[in-house]
């Protein structure tokens, strides 16, 4: 490693070559850092603030994994990726996991050989339109100009939706969310379509959010979740169960405030197994016993993460909706820790 640093000096930038070991977990531990692929900028989900600290819902998943694996939530290198570059970066091993509101689809899972470890946000594609346009349904959009962000599943959904309703439209592909919004605000497109969460996040940044309506149609299912490469199931398990731990913690009432206290042992055996005082689940993953406790202490449970970045008290103001616990009528259902 160090010798290669010297080579790097010669090639100016630092060639971080190293013998690849078979296991991502060992790589991450040896490196002391988790490489996490994130969005280049979507407020609420992943965006650097003025001080260049990454903030957001997807970011906290990276932090939770880093805390679980390395015990340090800040030992994360965030790799901003566009829709185009994200999969190659993951396939090439540039990143260890991708947490970039990526839709779980058959072809990505099977054909592109990735492993989606779960769903951290149930989303769907929607439309936002100015109120003065007088549109109440996406089916009224015959002949409309629609802005889309390229490199995502939204393009395909859009084509399918308009085709199945046999109405015509004019797509305007835009590379970044910010530029698409500019087009929408200037009236260069009638509606903008992306994941409903993204629409809400964007509407929050408008001058007069009340002048904009989000149309009722949700034209696709967009289960967004973190993913890893095929072939390293141990690493996939770690990311999957870190995510599950966040969800389960909310169901079990474990929060960042009480996790330290609960870690001393409780009457609830499942909480004990989750927090590592019982059962030795951490060792099975190849991690410390208090892996989940570490993660929870940093980021809090799923509900806390949600409320902090995209919940109703933030400018983005998303309701839990489908993303509530199954006990509350949502779809979040963590398998048992046993």
């Amino acid at each position: 490693m160090k010798k290669s640093m010297l080579l790097g000096a010669l090639t100016v930038a630092g060639l971080a070559a190293g013998a690849a070991s078979a296991s991502t977990l060992e790589d991450v531990k040896a490196r002391g850092e988790l490489n996490c692929g994130v969005n280049t900028g979507l407020v609420g989900f992943a965006a650097p603030d003025a001080n260049n600290n990454w903030q957001g819902f997807d970011i906290d998943i990276c932090r939770a994994v880093a805390a679980a694996v390395l015990g340090d939530p800040d030992a994360v290198k965030y790799v901003p990726l566009t829709g185009k570059t994200r999969f190659t970066a993951l396939a090439a091993g540039e990143i260890d996991m991708l947490s970039r509101n990526t839709t779980w689809t058959f072809s990505r899972d099977v054909d592109l050989k990735f492993e989606f470890v779960g769903v951290n946000y149930y989303d769907g594609q929607g439309f936002i339109a100015p109120r003065e346009l007088g549109v109440t349904s996406a089916k009224d959009l015959d002949g409309a100009t629609v802005c889309i962000q390229t490199g995502t599943t939204t393009e395909l959904n859009l084509a399918d939706f308009f085709r199945s309703n046999s109405i015509s439209y004019e797509p305007v592909p835009i590379e970044t969310n910010a530029e698409a919004l500019q087009q929408l605000l200037a009236g260069a497109c009638d509606v903008y379509t992306t994941d409903a969460s993204g629409l809400a996040a964007s509407r929050a940044t408008f001058e007069n959010p009340g002048d904009w309506v989000i149309l009722p149609e949700i034209i696709s299912k967009e289960p967004l979740g973190p993913l890893v490469r095929h072939g390293d199931n141990d690493w996939g398990d770690i990311v999957r169960w870190t995510l599950n731990a966040l969800v389960a913690a909310e169901e079990l009432g474990v929060t960042s405030a009480n996790v330290a206290e609960l870690s001393n042992g409780t009457d609830n055996p499942e909480v004990n197994r989750l927090l590592g005082t019982e059962g030795g689940l951490g060792e099975m993953l190849g991690l410390d016993a208090d892996w989940a406790a570490n993660a929870l202490a940093v980021t809090g449970n799923y509900g806390e993460i949600f409320e902090r970045h995209i919940g109703e008290n933030t400018p983005i103001g998303l309701a839990r909706g489908l993303n509530a616990q199954w006990t509350e009528g949502g779809l979040l259902y963590a398998p048992p820790f046993r």
């Binding site: 280049t40 900028g41 965006a47 650097p48 603030d49 970044t176 969310n177 910010a178 919004l181 940044t205």
Partner: peptide, 10 residues
């Protein structure tokens, strides 16, 4: 990226 995407300077 970050500047135009931010709420403040959109």
């Amino acid at each position: 990226g970050p500047i135009l995407a931010s709420t403040d300077w959109n």
